[in-house]
Design a protein around this nucleic acid. Sequence first.
DNA 1: CGTCTATTTGAATGTACTCAAAAGCGGTGG
DNA 2: CCACCGCTTTTGAGTACATTCAAATAGACG
Lengths: 193, 193
Amino acid sequence: MDFTAIRQNIEKHIDLSEEEFSYFTSLLKRRIAPKKKLLLQAGQSCTTFSFVNSGVLRAYYQDDSGKESTVMFALKDWWITDMYCFVNGLPAMLNIETLADSEVLQISKADLDALVDKIPKFERFLRILMQNAYTREQLRVIDSLSRTAEDRYHIFIKKYPQVVQLVTQRQIASYLGITPEFLSTIRAKKANS
Amino acid sequence: MDFTAIRQNIEKHIDLSEEEFSYFTSLLKRRIAPKKKLLLQAGQSCTTFSFVNSGVLRAYYQDDSGKESTVMFALKDWWITDMYCFVNGLPAMLNIETLADSEVLQISKADLDALVDKIPKFERFLRILMQNAYTREQLRVIDSLSRTAEDRYHIFIKKYPQVVQLVTQRQIASYLGITPEFLSTIRAKKANS
DNA sequence: CGTCTATTTGAATGTACTCAAAAGCGGTGG
DNA sequence: CCACCGCTTTTGAGTACATTCAAATAGACG
């Protein structure tokens, strides 16, 4: 298994000895999936937290009418799960699918709980991860409250240019909370200006 | 100073000895403010994290045109700050105002950093706080993407009935991302059904 | 009691959606 | 290699949800 990326990801925030790191990696399970597979399905128990080693994933909510709302995209170096259901031990509300052939490194909730008890530095690591996730979502809320769909689209492509290359416009539309048709008109408008 | 509420708040998640707790409280500064005062103003440096001991606060973003978007309300037992700017040492983007006479207990960023180094249990406490904040915001994003304003209003009054008593409809509208006029028509509709 | 702000109501407008149909694009099998 | 299939994107017409602006009414506070 290739732990280069995950090691860098963690050591951006905490320092680990070789023993600590190899204990950590002993808890990881590698999982690969081809494009268009569900790694997590709404209703299933959500007991793993995944680090993206390669590929592209998308977490989305699907309402009763079938409409999808994209919660997040995850490229290499991102962590992804249905955090609400993961921490509360509830059945997943979200679906997580691969948008390309992907490889993830997964840790179970039980192992993660044991890890933070054994090595408190991981508690800090997770605190920082959660802090960043919180502030990112809060900024997204502010954008969704204060800006038009057109502005949000331009902010999105500026903030996540790599994602734009890898996902469909339908998926971007569902991240922005608009229809694919309306996103198309926004893009047409931009082209003529 | 009355530390009953903050002690309970923390001991919901971690256990502290008397020494640990009194070290923690030695870092707190009490601040009281009458209704309609700004505890934090956009542009100021944002170096404190506040626990609400009594009263009601509101954090909001104000765009260039003057339009306000409410990010959160905080009642007794809530923690509030402009987290993004607090953790990154940036000037505040948000304003935080009292909606009633209020008392908060504040800890500075420097003291909080020292605290988590000294007592790792606080790292866990903050991790849980951030986790809850993250999942709460994520649910809010999902609601804002997948539901109409009318649904979001009904969800809001069900989820935060105490808040509804204490804040104006204008403020609720700015939390939902709609105009006060439109919230009024939603309410009228509900009354006739 | 008077003033100030919040809320309501209504008309006109704009932003975004629905539905339908056409055009584009990528992958697969013959 | 290209023809076809399925899916995505575009385009357009009609509609619904939400905003703006203005004015009336109601509440809160000194």
